[in-house]
Design a protein around this nucleic acid. Structure first.
Lengths: 202, 202
DNA sequence: GTCTATATCGGGATAGAC
DNA sequence: GTCTATCCCGATATAGAC
């Protein structure tokens, strides 16, 4: 059974997060979620209408929080480089502190039924367009190299999102170290070169 | 029903690839796979012992092909920069031409039972260590900036793997264009900077 | 090698008592 | 708000005919 939580709703959701992440949405039975929360399966339906609602709430909560943080960063900072650093650091921070939730977002999109998929996708689109705003603004102001904004944003978001898969808290590296390495890679690349081509690819 | 294929085994596997990618392993019924292959569900069991065997064969085939290609590149090329370019280009090429297979590898690891998971994970580990060999060799030879090899390899593999999710053949950009943008980003980063810090982060 | 028919099981969800 | 009991369906897999 999971450690205590104020509300039963919270306990159920926490159990669902753990089991959806571990076994996948379809492979995680309501009975097991209930047991982990310390109740019977039927009791879940007093708090949530069905299994799908658990998935939607998990995804919605984390995605909204991510977007709100990114929006705050865009409001508070103006310098493109600082914006990028803050955004990447925040993205990584949230993805490592809520590993399981973002892993579910990343792997269980297909399990969303009907309108739910479009809704969660719209939240993910919002996240992408926030990163794209940082990049295109930085390119216009000649801080960033001119390149395809969408592709660059996908590249950044992909590598930061995948952190939720492989990062182990308490492992060899701290979140701060990984963030520093990622930022260095994103901004300067891997190549250790004196001569730098200033020509830009169209 | 799927277009023809030489063998029924091939037809079944192609149907499984399509449905596992679209609905997920657990949400794709054997009945639907069979129907797509043009037979009855029971007939699948003449060709494969069970559903799990379909998943394993899909993952194994693509991962082995990826690793064999990367091993060939490491044999054929010596220059670190060229190795990296070839490896990334090959990785992207395979991931875009076999979108669904690699999407399944990326999202259905949890569905692997017993020994199967360790086996497929070992193939993925092999892929990672091949990229890591390129990077650490390039760092020793002062071609690449000194940084954490594992983190850098995860970053590269993550962004290239995620292509299988968002890339649409026939869309705005060709594979060649995306590959060029990715390679530019990986090697030179986003920052358009004259002054380049030569100090290296430990 | 494919079929029809079916065994067997586990899943989500509901009914109604307490 | 949680329980026990149960409905009902769809899933994998098997048996055995053709």
């Amino acid at each position: 059974m999971l450690p205590q939580s104020e509300s039963m709703r919270g306990r159920i959701l926490a159990a669902a997060v753990k089991l959806f992440a571990e076994y996948g949405y379809h492979a995680a039975p309501m009975r097991d979620i209930a047991m982990l929360a310390g109740i019977q399966a039927a009791s879940i339906y007093h708090h949530y209408p069905n299994k799908q609602a658990l998935l939607v709430e998990i995804m919605e909560t984390s995605m909204r929080r991510l977007n709100e943080g990114l929006e705050r960063i865009l409001r508070e900072f103006d310098d493109p480089m600082q914006r990028l650093q803050e955004a990447v650091a925040y993205h990584i921070d949230l993805h490592t502190r809520n590993k399981q939730e973002f892993f579910i977002i990343d792997t269980e999109m297909r399990a969303l039924e009907g309108e739910n998929r479009a809704y969660i996708l719209s939240l993910r689109d919002r996240c992408e367009s926030l990163f794209q705003e940082i990049l295109s603004d930085g390119m216009e102001r000649k801080i960033f190299r001119h390149t395809d904004v969408k592709v660059a944003s996908y590249a950044i978001i992909s590598m930061c999102t995948a952190l939720a898969t492989w990062f182990r808290p308490g492992g060899r590296l701290t979140v701060q170290q990984v963030t520093a390495i990622y930022l260095q890679t994103i901004t300067h690349g891997l190549l250790l070169a004196e001569e730098r081509p200033q020509t830009q690819v169209e």
